[in-house]
């Protein structure tokens, strides 16, 4: 019932988001057809605007856009005139989602064990080393890490390809570059969660009852310690799945992240609004999934 309510509330939320995105991108100075070379006659620009209804008032364009949306049509791209926004999403999103899922697995696959390890060895050198690594992963931005990885693993060692998106080997470096930040973040969150859980009363009680440290950590502490990681996972996954401009650009990956940024720079109105909506839908859906996961993991949480 509660989740149904959340779903219904999502619809007006999406409407507000689309309206805001639509309005904001339209009030930005310059338009999609402003070019360095002005057309030979101002009439040409008017032809273009008429073709894409940009000569109408913005509210009317918005209604027209909503009408298209109702039919599952995100409209034509104004910059890539041979493609619709649906084409762009259909081609770019699977790529970004694949890379994002890999990076997500990487973030959890590295972050969780690292967090656990450092928490279990707290106060000793493995903890310092692990925590330093996690902090480093959070601090080093993708546009530094990615070229570094390319120089070391692709150009010097020649283990992996430098760029492109054709074979699985080409997914490894971008996966690491994209997932490193999240991995570090997950490790830190999980380490703190573990430490907090291990100091909590129910763990002390369990320990007093003579429960083995082993069982205690894995069965009881982990379930509570993982909650902050779960909270963070929703937005993290939404972020990873929708692609990264920097990583896609450096590794020449045909994902959706490049389109979002370039769409805004090019005033490609339909692309910007369409991708903003896509991101919003993912975020809403994944937050809902996080709430689901909470009820499953934490017996103290129940929704009415």
């Amino acid at each position: 019932m509660y989740f149904l309510k959340r779903l219904i509330f999502a619809i007006p939320l999406l409407l507000v988001i689309s309206a805001l995105a639509f309005w904001l991108v339209h009030i930005a100075p310059g338009g999609p057809f402003d070019r360095e070379r002005a057309p030979a006659s101002p009439e040409i620009e008017r032809n273009l605007e008429a073709k894409y209804h940009l000569n109408e008032p913005v509210w009317k364009q918005y209604l027209r856009y909503l009408d298209g949306l109702a039919h599952g049509d995100f409209g034509p791209s104004l910059k890539y005139r041979d493609h619709s926004v649906n084409d762009i999403i259909a081609q770019g999103l699977p790529v970004s989602m694949t890379l994002g899922s890999l990076a997500f697995c990487f973030a959890l696959g590295i972050g969780l064990p690292l967090g656990f390890f450092t928490a279990a060895r707290r106060g000793r050198w493995p903890d310092y080393a692990g925590s330093f690594l996690a902090t480093l992963a959070v601090c080093v931005p993708g546009f530094v890490l990615a070229p570094f990885l390319i120089v070391v693993f692709a150009l010097k060692l020649k283990w992996l390809p430098v760029a492109l998106w054709e074979s699985p080997m080409q997914a490894i470096l971008p996966m690491i570059a994209l997932g490193a930040f999240s991995a570090g973040k997950v490790a830190r969150l999980f380490r703190e969660g573990m430490l907090n859980a291990m100091q909590s009363e129910f763990v002390t009680a369990a320990r007093a009852k003579g429960l083995g440290e082993n069982r205690l950590l894995l069965k009881h502490a982990v379930r509570i310690a993982v909650l902050p990681v779960v909270s963070y996972s929703g937005p993290m996954l939404a972020d990873l799945l929708t692609g990264s401009f920097v990583i896609e650009n450096i590794f020449q990956i045909p994902g959706i992240g490049v389109f979002l940024i370039n769409g805004a720079l090019n005033r490609d109105y339909t692309v910007v609004v369409g991708l903003a909506l896509l991101y919003a839908v993912l975020l809403i859906a994944l937050n809902l999934a996080v709430d689901f996961a909470y009820t499953w993991l934490d017996p103290r949480v129940k929704y009415e």
Partner: peptide, 21 residues
């Protein structure tokens, strides 16, 4: 000692994630 084995488990957990990957 418990931590040791737990660390072992954590390693196995990470192995599982790598297999997944």
């Amino acid at each position: 000692a418990g931590v040791q084995t737990a660390t072992g488990r954590a390693l196995r957990l990470s192995q599982a994630f790598f297999c997944l990957l």
